[in-house]
């Protein structure tokens, strides 16, 4: 069993909700990202989603776009993102790391080279936002051969038929997008979301986590109550935006930023 599966299994056993913060690798520089990753783990993150900077993030809202632009300004590449994970792993073997990004940088590196490198540095799973299952055969095979989880999104617009095919491709956890739109938009009706999650449960035993629109402890608790965990992205990236581009953040700054995640952890831990 891989690290991500072990984390999910033990969370399920302890009735603990998965807490998954997202940050962009190299936003505003790689040293800051490394400090933040350790800070997030200390604040109670089970999994860290690490965004790979891409020049054209067409599925992301303005907050994450700006984070990506800061990362590109610090010239952070896919190779740098992988090295960042290697450095994180030197001091942390408990927290899962999922790379999230767009296909082109992976395509240019080569599917097998990417998968091998990702496994070597201690990546646990990969989520490519612009690669639906129908186009995924080659990369999927390379990732699975390297023992990496392949995570997919299900959206409110996903038909049941498609959802069935997605869960067949998906491993690690299933990422349910809570709303129509891009990252960072406002959360919609939680009853509708709960209904959809119930429907997905009948298709898969994978943990189902909710992302898009979760910004604080209250929304984390509300979404955690109807799922197996939550992803917090834009709200965290918004806080990171305050860091200086050229400096390594001080411990107090890291703790302050990661307090968002610590509070979400507390809120989730009040749930049964």
């Amino acid at each position: 069993m891989g690290r991500l599966q072990e984390i999910a299994a033990s969370a399920a056993q302890q009735k603990r909700k998965l807490l998954i913060p997202y940050l962009v690798a190299g936003d505003p520089n790689v040293e800051a990202s490394l400090a933040l990753m350790h800070g997030l783990a200390a604040a109670g993150a089970d999994v860290i989603e690490l965004g790979i900077p891409f020049s054209d993030p067409a599925s992301d809202g303005p907050v994450i776009q700006r984070g990506v632009e800061r990362a590109l300004k610090s010239k952070t590449t896919l190779t740098d993102s992988l090295e960042l994970v290697a450095r994180f792993r030197a001091d942390n073997s408990d927290t899962a790391v999922v790379l999230m990004g767009y296909l082109n940088p992976i395509e240019i590196m080569g599917y097998e080279a990417f998968s091998d490198k990702a496994r070597q540095v201690g990546v646990d799973g990969v989520l490519v936002v612009d690669m639906p299952p129908a186009e995924s055969a080659g990369l999927h095979q390379a990732l699975r051969a390297a023992g990496l989880e392949t995570i997919y999104l299900v959206a409110p617009t996903t038909t049941d038929k498609r959802a069935q095919s997605i869960v067949e491709h998906c491993s690690g956890y299933l990422y349910y997008v809570s709303l129509k739109g891009v990252t960072g938009a406002a959360l919609s009706d939680s009853d509708l979301i709960a209904e959809r999650i119930q429907a997905l449960r009948s298709m898969t035993d994978l943990p189902i986590v909710i992302g898009f629109g979760i910004k604080d402890a209250d929304s984390a608790r509300a979404m955690g109550a109807i799922s197996d965990g939550v992803i917090i992205g834009s709200a965290l990236v918004e806080r990171i935006a305050g860091l200086s581009a050229d400096a390594v953040p001080e411990a107090a700054q890291v703790e302050d930023i990661c307090s968002l995640i610590a509070l979400a952890r507390q809120a989730l831990d009040t749930l049964e």
């Binding site: 690669m131 617009t157 498609r162 129509k180 739109g181």
Partner: peptide, 12 residues
């Protein structure tokens, strides 16, 4: 060619 878009747009 193909279809390389986010899941939200696949149905459309």
């Amino acid at each position: 060619g193909g279809i390389f878009v986010g899941e939200t747009l696949i149905d459309a």
